[in-house]
């Protein structure tokens, strides 16, 4: 008999009445799409570095991070499809929705730029993602909580890596410092969308499924302040919540190009599989 049969306690799959709650359905579906669209769009963006990283280790690290995010997407959009109850799979949602149906924040669809932009964007997102998932492990929805617990283990090292690199490059050479500062200045006004609540966020918070976004902000700011200080980078003085609308489906022109590449195969050859 194997070790595992003795040490692992069998546990039934999480039962979750909220998944079938009709009153919650529109907001719950919308919110799950936000989670899954953030991870699929950022995952796709980061995967664009595959084969183009500045050094082999960074190339592998970026590809691994992208893979984690795509894995999270399968869980979030898979659950979104269940909640919606129309038989759509995670693949259907990722590959067959148009840009205006996507619910990701604008931050994640921006082009990669140089490594400074890519890493700074990852850091700003990871710091939010980490706080969000930490709070979601206590979600009233057992299904959401188990996805969060799984994803959090991976996002923990995403945050560790991106914050580490922000410090090393910010507090690095004159060239790397200047590029990191420029990246921060460019991205800053997009970060606040992750913390701007609308009716969907309010409904999820009221149902105990997701935290109040305002509650996540203080810890995010602490993490950002600490890392930027150590990186000798200057926090921009302007507002961080200028760019809004991605979560409601109003995107930059960049998302369409991502989807054109990401969705091409399923659009051109519907139902293709291997």
């Amino acid at each position: 008999m194997s070790v595992q049969s003795e040490t692992i306690t069998p546990q039934a799959p999480a039962a979750d009445p909220l998944v079938a709650d009709e009153a919650l359905r529109p907001a719950f579906f919308d919110w799950l799409c936000r989670m899954g669209d953030n991870t699929v769009v950022l995952g796709h963006r980061i995967s664009e570095w595959c084969g183009h990283g500045p050094v082999l280790e960074e190339d592998i690290a970026l590809a691994n991070t992208a893979l984690d995010l795509i894995g999270h997407t399968q869980m979030w959009l898979g659950l979104a499809g269940e909640v919606e109850g129309r038989g759509r799979s995670a693949d259907d949602l990722a590959f067959l929705r148009d840009a205006y149906r996507f619910r990701n924040a604008k931050l994640v669809e921006l082009p990669n730029g140089d490594m400074a932009v890519t890493l700074m964007r990852e850091f700003l997102f990871d710091a939010w993602h980490f706080e969000m998932l930490t709070a979601l492990t206590r979600s009233a929805s057992a299904r959401v909580a188990e996805i969060a617990a799984k994803a959090l283990k991976e996002v923990s090292y995403h945050l560790e890596r991106s914050s580490d690199l922000v410090v090393r490059l910010g507090d690095g050479s004159a060239e790397s410092h200047a590029r990191m500062q420029e990246a921060l200045d460019r991205l800053w006004s997009y970060a606040g969308e992750l913390f701007t609540a609308d009716a969907t966020d309010d409904a999820m918070a009221a149902a105990g499924i997701a935290p109040s976004l305002a509650d996540l902000l203080a810890q995010w700011q602490r993490t950002v302040d600490e890392v930027l200080e150590e990186a000798t980078l200057r926090k921009p003085e302007g507002r961080f919540d200028v760019h809004q609308g991605g979560k409601q489906g109003r995107h930059t022109e960049h998302l369409g190009y991502i989807l054109a590449e990401m969705q091409f195969l399923q659009r051109a050859y519907p139902g293709a599989s291997w």
């Binding site: 923990s156 090292y157 560790e160 914050s163 580490d164 922000v166 600490e226 890392v227 150590e230």
Partner: peptide
């Protein structure tokens, strides 16, 4: 040696 996200930057390095 697992990451916990809280050890960001300094401790991690």
């Amino acid at each position: 040696t697992a990451s916990d996200g809280r050890t960001a930057s300094r401790a991690a390095r």
